[in-house]
């Protein structure tokens, strides 16, 4: 790798790109950036783990990216990247729920199904304590939406606190997490864990919650997923969807104008058709009573069937149908 290339890339890594979008924009496979990042990851540049994890996780619709996504999510999670911890929880959950075979390469499966469910919760709890908003919601909702119990969530929260204290977030008995071998977490990241733990404890005191679950719920008060950007996006979608309807209305208006401005031949043809329709409607109206009489047996046959499914005091009668038909 050329030194200039490496230097440029390192500079770009230090810029505050944190969104997944940034990851996709930053990594350009064709320009060789992916290869450079992989080399940097080999050199234990942990920011490279994060970018690789996000880059691959955005591409998992293509199966070939699934394994690298899991691999780099594990590595980035090990060094405390919140998004990757959450992503790994998601993979673990899917693996446990749907037995996705591709995950087997990096998520160990033999006889660990029960443990994987608990590990999903552990990772979510870690991500929540480190500030991931989706994880905060999930921690509250898991026992409400799934068969996970509140007890399991409490266990996970305790385990998460313990792991953050120890500075070791990933259970390497469940994941293949020795590539590249980076088990010594840099001191800066350990400080981040300590700060998160401190905040977590202080917040719990401030919220005066009586249980862990209550604490988790109270923490949702500060979350807002609907950003002004998203709100604007939905408004734009509405405007886009309305546009063809507006065009249709314009066309119909134009057609109506053209019709009134039609030449004599067209006008007389339209008049003739209208008169024909009017006459036809009158003829239909004229036969109303006789037709209803003729159709009675059909209506009764259908009402008898319909009323099998209706309450005794809520039956539809022939008189009801005749009243509806008699309305203007």
């Amino acid at each position: 790798m050329s030194k200039i290339k490496t230097l440029l890339l390192l500079i770009s890594l230090l810029t505050p790109f944190s969104s997944a979008y940034a990851a996709t924009k930053m990594v350009d496979k064709n320009s060789g950036q992916e290869a450079v990042l992989l080399e940097l990851a080999d050199l234990k540049v942990i920011e490279a783990y994060r970018i690789l994890a996000e880059y691959y996780s955005l591409r998992v619709a293509d199966k070939k990216y699934v394994k690298p996504s899991i691999l780099w999510s594990i590595q980035a999670a090990e060094v405390g990247n919140t998004k990757s911890i959450y992503q790994l929880a998601k993979y673990t959950r899917e693996f446990e729920q749907f037995k996705k075979p591709f995950s087997g390469a990096y998520i160990k499966q033999a006889g660990l199904s029960g443990k994987l469910q608990q590990e999903t919760l552990n990772l979510i709890a870690i991500a929540a304590i480190l500030g991931n908003p989706y994880a905060k919601t999930d921690l509250v909702m898991f026992p409400k939406l799934t068969s996970v119990t509140y007890k399991q969530v409490n266990m996970a929260t305790k385990e998460a606190l313990l792991r953050l204290k120890k500075g070791k977030l990933i259970n390497c008995k469940l994941y293949v997490c020795n590539y590249p071998a980076t088990h010594s977490v840099p001191p800066g990241i350990l400080t981040k864990y300590q700060f998160a733990l401190q905040q977590h404890t202080q917040q719990a005191k401030r919220l005066k919650c009586k249980s862990l679950q209550q604490c988790h719920s109270a923490r949702l008060n500060s979350l807002v997923f609907l950003t002004p950007t998203k709100v604007n996006k939905y408004k734009e979608v509405a405007a886009t969807e309305n546009a063809p309807k507006i065009r249709k209305n314009q066309r119909l208006t134009k057609e109506a104008v053209n019709k009134t401005a039609a030449n004599w031949d067209q006008q007389s043809n339209d008049d003739r058709n209208n008169k024909r329709m009017q006459a036809a409607r009158k003829a239909v109206a004229y036969h109303a009573a006789a037709d209803k009489e003729k159709l009675k047996s059909k209506i009764i046959e259908l009402l008898d069937k319909m009323n099998l499914h209706r309450a005794a005091d809520n039956q539809v009668t022939l008189a009801d149908i005749m009243n509806i038909l008699a309305q203007p």
């Binding site: 908003p133 919601t137 409400k144 719920s217 939905y234």
Partner: peptide, 21 residues
């Protein structure tokens, strides 16, 4: 007895556009 009140904007899995509307 699991009835709770949670801030609607924190439940990301609910359809967002309905909240916008």
């Amino acid at each position: 007895n699991d009835i709770t009140l949670l801030p609607v904007q924190s439940l990301y899995f609910l359809p967002e556009v309905n909240q916008v509307e």
